[in-house]
Simulated scan of single mutants.
Amino acid sequence: MRISEILRRKGSDVVTVAPGATVRTLLAALAVRNIGAVVVSPDGNAISGIVSERDVVRWLHIRGADLLDTPVSEIMTSDVRTCTLDDRIDGLRRTMTEHRVRHLPVVYEGRLVGIVSIGDVVKSAISELTTERQHLVEYLQGQY
């Protein structure tokens, strides 16, 4: 299965915040949308970075409550791993595991077109296994 199939199923909506937005604004976006990460983008197309709940927790531990009025550009991960619509899910699983990331922005022709989470990857794996199981059961039942 390819990343394009996941986006077809879940949609391509991506929540972004501007690099100058405060951590307080970021937290509001995470809470309202019930998501775990936000892409940092000046225009909704280019990727400047990504910030996750874990990033906020780590920086909050270091800097305390003053962090809330800090621009997200100061805490974002700027070396963002991405994937493309043509990438395969099995490669994505490897990337997420090896680099310990839970969210990968999807790019097409240099533009942000979606985001895939570890939850999306797990859901696709379960779907594939369920389909495989169903085919095997049908095959075995047809043999008798």
Rank of each mutant, 00 (worst) to 15 (best):
A31R: 14
P71N: 11
W59A: 09
V39P: 11
V32T: 13
E98D: 13
T131A: 12
E5D: 09
L27M: 15
L140W: 14
T82R: 13
G114P: 02
S117P: 11
E109I: 05
L140H: 13
V14W: 10
V137A: 12
V137K: 14
I35C: 11
M76L: 12
S4M: 00
K10D: 02
R63H: 15
D13K: 15
V40L: 14
G142E: 15
T25H: 11
R93W: 01
G64W: 09
H135Y: 11
R8W: 03
L104F: 09
R9A: 06
T95A: 08
P105W: 11
T97L: 13
G11W: 06
Q134I: 02
V32N: 07
V137F: 10
R81N: 09
T22H: 04
D13H: 13
S4E: 09
I89H: 00
V39H: 11
V72E: 01
I50R: 03
L26D: 06
V17A: 05
V113H: 08
M76E: 10
G36R: 12
V23C: 10
E132H: 05
V56A: 04
W59Q: 12
V51C: 05
V121C: 01
E98C: 02
E128R: 04
R9E: 09
I3K: 01
V113F: 06
H61C: 08
G91N: 12
V106Q: 08
L30N: 06
T82A: 05
G110N: 08
H99Y: 14
L140C: 13
V113S: 10
V51L: 08
Q141D: 13
G119D: 05
V80R: 07
V106G: 07
R24S: 14
N45M: 15
L140S: 12
R8T: 09
T77Q: 10
D69M: 13
P42K: 14
L7K: 03
I126Q: 01
R24H: 10
A18K: 12
D69P: 02
G142N: 14
L129F: 01
G91F: 02
M96T: 10
S73M: 14
G11H: 07
D43Q: 12
T77Y: 04
I126R: 05
L92K: 00
N45G: 14
V40G: 13
V38W: 09
I50P: 00
R58I: 11
I62W: 14
T82C: 09
S73H: 13
M1Q: 00
Y139I: 10
R94D: 08
V113N: 07
E74I: 02
L30V: 07
G49P: 04
W59P: 00
R133E: 04
V57C: 04
G49R: 04
T97F: 10
R102N: 13
R102W: 14
V39D: 11
R93S: 07
I50H: 02
G119K: 03
D90V: 05
E74L: 13
D79W: 06
V121H: 01
T16D: 04
Q143C: 08
T16Y: 05
P19A: 08
D87W: 00
I89L: 10
M76R: 08
I3M: 02
I118C: 03
D55E: 06
L129H: 02
I126D: 03
I62L: 15
T130G: 03
E132C: 00
N45Y: 15
D43S: 11
M1W: 00
H61V: 14
